[in-house]
Design a binder for these strands. Structure first.
Lengths: 145, 145
DNA sequence: ACTATCCCGAGTAAATAAGTCAAGATTAGA
DNA sequence: TCTAATCTTGACTTATTTACTCGGGATAGT
């Protein structure tokens, strides 16, 4: 497991926040619905606010709202915001400035891994994830009935 | 950077070992050609030997040889041997046994990430990497001339 | 005023990464 | 037989990161 809980929880928090457009969603609500420590969520969502994904509304009945449309937020930028680079190896992170003169033989492999990650994560929007969460929850309710 | 140096060095060691079929390659040689600590390499290659990728020949003029054809060793199995699971998140690692009843909305995303990794790494053989290393080294020699 | 909420910075316990170090076993070749 | 090269094993170390907890302060609706 190499995606940190910060990034995972951050994505899940955005799903909860993006699910109720117009009205602010409190972290207490996110915390209980997604079962994540409130204090930890505060740290994570603060990062998302600083990066411009959400807006905060302070005081009683406050909470968070998306600052951009869910369809214009992709998973890659959310993950890298909270986690920094997710390049598989250093030479990809440093972008081609390889100390071993690129003769190690594995460089191209790691770049292809990186490209695949960007494609999957970059090609998935928050809107996609919200739809999926709704469907999953719906299916679960039917299952319980 | 989330692929450990163990896995990276292990792949590079296999390239050096696989490059000279028939004759044993010493870790001292691998160490100097790939600029990796000898002691650390010992640990890593011991893991590759236990997993059946290489055979050791002890004593003076000994070293390591591939135990299987380079075309039948892929990068995914080498990496996971040295590193354990490279699943992006826990619920993928545990394969569907998700404590939040799969309603978090992100499960499918992580499974798609995992599938992409398996495809890229599983589809690259040691033989491919050896060819690439040869070509890179050749290009480097021309560049220096 | 009261309470719900966001906001901020410090601290911490456990795990992991990336090695180092020391000593021993095995074998080729002089 | 001796020696040097090599593999083999296991303990140890050091620094960093992760995943939180904790305490208190600022802001705003009722």
């Amino acid at each position: 497991m190499w995606i940190s809980t910060r990034a995972q929880y951050g994505l899940r928090a955005l799903i909860e926040i993006g699910r109720q457009p117009g009205e602010p969603v409190s972290l207490k609500e996110v915390s209980s619905r997604q079962d994540i420590s409130l204090h930890y969520l505060e740290q994570i969502v603060a990062g998302l606010r600083r990066a411009g994904f959400v807006q905060s509304i302070r005081g009683a009945r406050g909470g968070y709202q998306l600052a951009r449309p869910a369809a214009e937020i992709n998973a890659y930028e959310v993950v890298t915001t909270l986690e920094g680079s997710i390049a598989p190896v250093q030479c990809v992170e440093d972008d081609h400035t390889c100390e071993s003169q690129n003769v190690c033989g594995t460089q191209d492999l790691w770049f292809r891994v990186d490209a695949a990650l960007r494609e999957v994560l970059g090609g998935t929007t928050l809107a996609d994830l919200i739809v999926e969460a709704q469907q999953q929850q719906h299916a679960r309710l039917i299952q319980l009935a």
